[in-house]
Design a binder for these strands. Structure first.
Lengths: 218, 218
DNA sequence: CACAAAGCGGACTGGCCGCTCCACTTGTGG
DNA sequence: CCACAAGTGGAGCGGCCAGTCCGCTTTGTG
């Protein structure tokens, strides 16, 4: 379980702020090479700082991961907003999924592993996640009006399917091309007569489910 | 790295064989609850045997995982062979993917995590994997003749896409239904005019890639 | 039925990892 | 430029975990 992060702190000293960035970058690098099991010692070494610094900037390893996740979700959100302004002809949702898959493959293992951990319950992550879902909803609306997308798809579906395409490839990048599997999914997302089974979860359902994952108690 | 397993051993004593099964079952249970990081101590406890017994039956934890994987691949193979004899009207590949996804969700995390480890290099796993690919190839041929499947899909693709659908759902089972995402993929797999980018890897490519993953040396 | 070989359990070990602690350094407001 | 709060690094701690060891028990064969 992760406690609320840094409520109302005054700004970090210059060197501290710099180390924070160094740590986040090093962590991204190390995690993508070795998975989330990589040691904090290795991250500290890669960042060129001491062990103690890691835990002064991020109270636990999980907080560090959460901060990294917030960072990445933010990146995706701004990519999505850009697409909203200049929607490509072949569909802005598809374009978003391209960005998404590429980012997930770059940060190999980050998205996957995050879901199973308490990171998902971090307030910062939840907030960033919510904002992203909002933008995706707008992208969907755009494509739907243009007749590019079947009408029973929601923002959650888009994220789930991006994760799906990613995991079809990761570890086999040399063998399987994400473009191939994204093309399959894209073909399945075009307007169609038959409805998909089930339904895309509503925002309140998503929020409740995420909150539940946060307190596993098991 | 995993060394060749038990070459030409004479049959296990009755109690040893029983414990082997108990351990495999316990391991499946514990891994699906806690992931592959679960301790061997917990597995031994759940199986009702001592710690020592784990490591006499399986030289390392990785060997245990590999044995479990072989077991599961075998199950899938026989399901696939059954479909070959009585192909369902809506497509035998789709039916196979249904089985596959359900099994992967039951053994949560097993498939995912296996890929990143040396387990993939275990000779037993490789062999079982090869046999499975052969049967899938036959299922594909069947569907293709019936005009149910686009013609640029290979056995590797089917496995990759099964994994994809699984990972779209796992950890969110309450929220996302695998049937929903499998339906998207199925829609994308129907015969189509436009070709998929890239190509399905050949058997020799697959074998070489798997062998490479076996000796990471990093 | 006897007895060797095979199997068993669980205490133990060595190593790793997240995290803490504290003597020392550095940035910054006055 | 000084004083002190803020920040730093790295040795060290406790806990966990894969794998070992060895005295005892079970199996099945002659």
């Amino acid at each position: 379980m992760i406690k609320p992060m840094t409520t109302a702190t005054r700004p970090l000293r210059a060197d501290a702020e710099r180390n924070r960035r160094l740590l986040l970058d090093a962590a991204a690098e190390v995690f993508s090479e070795q998975g989330l099991d990589a040691s904090t010692a290795e991250i500290a070494r890669r960042a060129g700082v001491g062990q103690g610094t890691v835990f002064r900037r991020f109270p636990t390893k999980e907080h560090l991961i959460a901060a990294l996740v917030v960072d990445r979700i933010g990146e995706l959100e701004s990519k999505a907003r850009a697409l909203l302004l200049h929607p490509p002809a072949d569909g802005s949702v598809l374009a978003f999924m391209r960005e998404s898959v590429q980012q997930h493959l770059r940060d190999r293992g980050l998205v996957e592993a995050v879901i199973g951990t308490a990171v998902i319950a971090d307030p910062g992550v939840q907030e960033a996640h919510g904002l992203l879902l909002d933008v995706i909803e707008e992208l969907i609306e755009l494509d739907r009006r243009a007749g590019l997308l079947r009408d029973d798809i929601g923002a959650f579906d888009v994220m789930a399917l991006s994760k799906a395409v990613t995991s079809a490839c990761d570890q086999f990048v040399n063998l399987a091309s994400w473009k191939r599997y994204l093309a399959v999914v894209a073909a399945g997302l075009r307007p169609a007569a038959d409805k998909l089974p089930g339904r895309s979860p509503s925002r309140t359902q998503i929020d409740r489910a995420l909150a539940d994952l946060g307190r596993p108690s098991s």
